[in-house]
Design a protein around this nucleic acid. Sequence first.
DNA 1: GTTGATGTGTTATGTTATAACATGTAATGA
DNA 2: TCATTACATGTTATAACATAACACATCAAC
Lengths: 167, 167
Amino acid sequence: MKKKKKNENSSKIFEYHDHGACFGDAITQIEDYFIQKKLQLTPLRRKVFEILIEDHKPLGAYDILDKLGEAGFSSSPPIAYRVLDFLIEHGFVHKVQGLNAFIACSNPKHSHFPTFVICRKCEKVAEVSEEKSGLNLPSPRITNFKIEKTTIELTGICSTCENAEIR
Amino acid sequence: MKKKKKNENSSKIFEYHDHGACFGDAITQIEDYFIQKKLQLTPLRRKVFEILIEDHKPLGAYDILDKLGEAGFSSSPPIAYRVLDFLIEHGFVHKVQGLNAFIACSNPKHSHFPTFVICRKCEKVAEVSEEKSGLNLPSPRITNFKIEKTTIELTGICSTCENAEIR
DNA sequence: GTTGATGTGTTATGTTATAACATGTAATGA
DNA sequence: TCATTACATGTTATAACATAACACATCAAC
Ligand SMILES: [Zn+2]
Ligand SMILES: [Zn+2]
Ligand SMILES: [Zn+2]
Ligand SMILES: [Zn+2]
């Protein structure tokens, strides 16, 4: 986190971020969390998380399985699904329903109801936190219902792709 | 539905509605729309919509296929998926991503970004319109992105089920 | 009467996810 | 010490969801 400019507040949710730092932070965070919660960050679990944080984009379960195979782990479906469920449960991974894919959380520290913004053209996906999305959740008018989990996905086209679109 | 007590005024999004009327209205609406748009409301399309509006709950594509089969239509997968895509495109059906299921729209007149409220216990699903959900969408802070489609699903437990839950 | 658009049918296959059961390992604690 | 338990991983098989590709019929337009 170095450069802070004026247009920071604007909506460049797909813009460059320092993924080197992001990657390192993410690994540190998951390690700390697992220690603190007395959970086992096994080689398999670590590998799955690394695969997801590596490019930091959504991957299908079978893509992950392939990479697990390459890395010498078993690559039968339950392996991936179980670990993914576990990582989701602990907030380090989210499922992007619209893509049947899994993505490393961009900010596990937040206890969040994340919003995913998905460009249908370049297929970039951004996770936007509750506050930033301006999407004020648990509606006062749905009080008779206890929200446990949300799926909020906004699909469309990012400005870059829109500008590039043929007319 | 007999007992009406105090807690009436709260958000009874799962409450009884006059589905006889709902059903009739829905059929009329789709007929009108198809005429107006010069689309063909073929027997197959009508049947699929009727199946969905009948119980007005989410059905998987293969459930629909079974019912189509019973009604004398072909029941091979593409039949259902094609018609569902068509009905979705025209706003009469939505897909509930969290359930891999399809549900008749509760108010096709609204040009909407609907919210689905899903009880994980009784599996009831309510479609809440943009305004009612209190969920004010297209955030000013995501302006650099043109939203074309939204998936908003709130999963949790309804008050009825919560009260019935073992502790 | 050929062409193109549309709607349905069929076969086969692809993709995503889970059930059920087996094995290994480590901590617990009679 | 040796059951008991919890947990993590592995394996096989199958379930559930979805699409590709091609065939055929109808109908309106040219
Ligand atoms: Zn997140
Ligand atoms: Zn884009
Ligand atoms: Zn609707
Ligand atoms: Zn309920």
